[in-house]
C-alpha cells in the first residue's frame, strides 16, 4: 500500500491533509513512532490515524493507556534518543493531565542540558469551540504553552498549512504543540489541493490570508475564517481589512505584523481563547513596542470572555468571539 492518500489534483480536507503528512513522515522516517489513546485499533477519535497501525504496525503506532503524562513522558524518552515521536492528545483539553511533562520536562530539556539533548516530538490534538463540546472539549489553550519557553506552538488554518507545518514540526528538533481546530477538520469550503514535491511550511512565517489597506487583523486557527467573514462585511462598506494568519505562534512572525501595520495603521488581534493573558494580548504588547508610532487607533483585541466554554449553544456563543464582535472592533478602529 502506498502511503499517499490523496494524489495529484485531488482536493482534501484538513483531516486528510494531516493524515497524509503523518503517513508520509512515518514512511520517510522508519524510526518514527506515534503514541496516543485509541490511535491504533480505532484509528483515533476523529480518524486522523485511521489505517496507520495497519500500515506501520502496533510497535510504531502505540495504543497507549489513558495517561497523558505517560504519553508525553514516553515521547520525551524516545525522542531524546533521536527518535521522532508524534504524541496525540485525544482532545487538546486533556493535555492538562500531561502538563508537567510538557512544561517542565520537554520544554526545558534542551536548555537544561546546555544543548546536548534535543527532543524531536510533536504533541498534536483537536482544539477549539463552536461545536457544543462544553468546558473540556472546546479549549484553545495555546497560551499555556506559549508561556513555557522551549516549546514550538503551531495552529494552522488550511489543509496545506496543516500538512506542511506538521511535516516541518516532525522534522524539527524541538517539542511542539500542534493545534488542530476540529471545526476545520472536515470543513468543505476550505478543502484544497496540497502542493506536491515534499511541500513544507516554515515555522515563524505568517501567511497573508487577505490583503487590505485599512486595518490589520492578526489571528490564527478558526478565527481566520471569522475575520474573513468580517472582512467581507467591512468591504461592503469600503473598508479593506488585511488578515495575517500567524500559523505559528512560537516562533512568531513579528515582521509580518509590523509590515502590515505600517500599511494599515490599525490592528485588531483576535484569539478564540479567554482574554486575560491570551495570545492576542501578547500580540498587542509587541505591537505597542515596535509599531506604536504607526498606529492611528488604539490596538484592540477580540477574544472569548474570561469564562469557561459552556455547553449549550446560547451560552457557548455568548462567550466565544463572533463575526460581529470582530466587525464592530474593526469599525471602532476605523472610526477612531
Amino acid at each position: 500500500m502506498s502511503a499517499v492518500i490523496a494524489e495529484g489534483t485531488q482536493t482534501v480536507n484538513m483531516l486528510t491533509a494531516i493524515k497524509q503528512a503523518l503517513f508520509e513522515e512515518m514512511e520517510r522516517e522508519p524510526g518514527m513512532v506515534c503514541i496516543g489513546e485509541d490511535i491504533g485499533i480505532l484509528g483515533g477519535a476523529f480518524g486522523v490515524t485511521e489505517g496507520l497501525q495497519d500500515r506501520f504496525g502496533a510497535e510504531r503506532v502505540i495504543d497507549a493507556p489513558i495517561s497523558e503524562a505517560l504519553i508525553v513522558g514516553a515521547a520525551v524518552g524516545m525522542s531524546m534518543r533521536g527518535r521522532p515521536v508524534m504524541a496525540e492528545m485525544q482532545f487538546i483539553d486533556f493535555i492538562s493531565c500531561g502538563f508537567d511533562q510538557i512544561v517542565n520536562n520537554a520544554a526545558t530539556m534542551h536548555y537544561r542540558t546546555a544543548g546536548k539533548v534535543s527532543l524531536p516530538m510533536v504533541i498534536r490534538g483537536p482544539s477549539g469551540g463552536y461545536g457544543g463540546g462544553g468546558p473540556y472539549h472546546s479549549q484553545q489553550n495555546e497560551a499555556w504553552f506559549a508561556h513555557s519557553p522551549g516549546l514550538r506552538v503551531v495552529c494552522p488554518s488550511t489543509p496545506s498549512d496543516a500538512y506542511g507545518l506538521l511535516k516541518t514540526c516532525l522534522r524539527d528538533n524541538n517539542p511542539c504543540i500542534f493545534y488542530e481546530v476540529k471545526e476545520l477538520y472536515r470543513k468543505r469550503e476550505i478543502e484544497e489541493q496540497i502542493p506536491g514535491g515534499d511541500y513544507t511550511v516554515p515555522l515563524g512565517k505568517a501567511r497573508i490570508a487577505r490583503e487590505g489597506s485599512d486595518l490589520t487583523f492578526v489571528t490564527y486557527g478558526n478565527m481566520v475564517y471569522f475575520c474573513l467573514e468580517a472582512a467581507v462585511k467591512l468591504a461592503e462598506e469600503g473598508i479593506e481589512a488585511e488578515i495575517i494568519d500567524l500559523r505559528s505562534l512560537v516562533p512568531l512572525d513579528d515582521e509580518a505584523i509590523l509590515n502590515s501595520i505600517k500599511k494599515t495603521n490599525r490592528v485588531i488581534a483576535v484569539n478564540e481563547a479567554p482574554m486575560t493573558c491570551g495570545f492576542a494580548g501578547e500580540i498587542l504588547a509587541r505591537v505597542n513596542e515596535y509599531a506604536f508610532e504607526y498606529l492611528d487607533a488604539p490596538p484592540a483585541r477580540v477574544t472569548r470572555t474570561d469564562t469557561p466554554v459552556p455547553w449549550v449553544k446560547p451560552l457557548e456563543l455568548a462567550v466565544l468571539p463572533s463575526v460581529d464582535d470582530i466587525y464592530e472592533a474593526a469599525k471602532r478602529a476605523v472610526n477612531y
Binding site: 482532545f91 483539553d93 486533556f94 492538562s96 493531565c97 457544543g132 463540546g133 462544553g134 468546558p135 473540556y136 472539549h137 469557561p308 459552556p310 455547553w311 449549550v312 451560552l315
Partner: peptide, 21 residues
C-alpha cells in the same frame, strides 16, 4: 446546562461534579 451530560453535581446532595478528565 453549563457542562454536558454527566458533568453535574451538588454538594448538598452528596454528588461530586466531575470534569471530563
Amino acid at each position: 446546562a453549563r457542562d454536558n451530560w454527566s458533568h453535574i453535581g451538588d454538594a448538598s446532595k452528596g454528588i461530586i461534579c466531575s470534569t471530563s478528565m
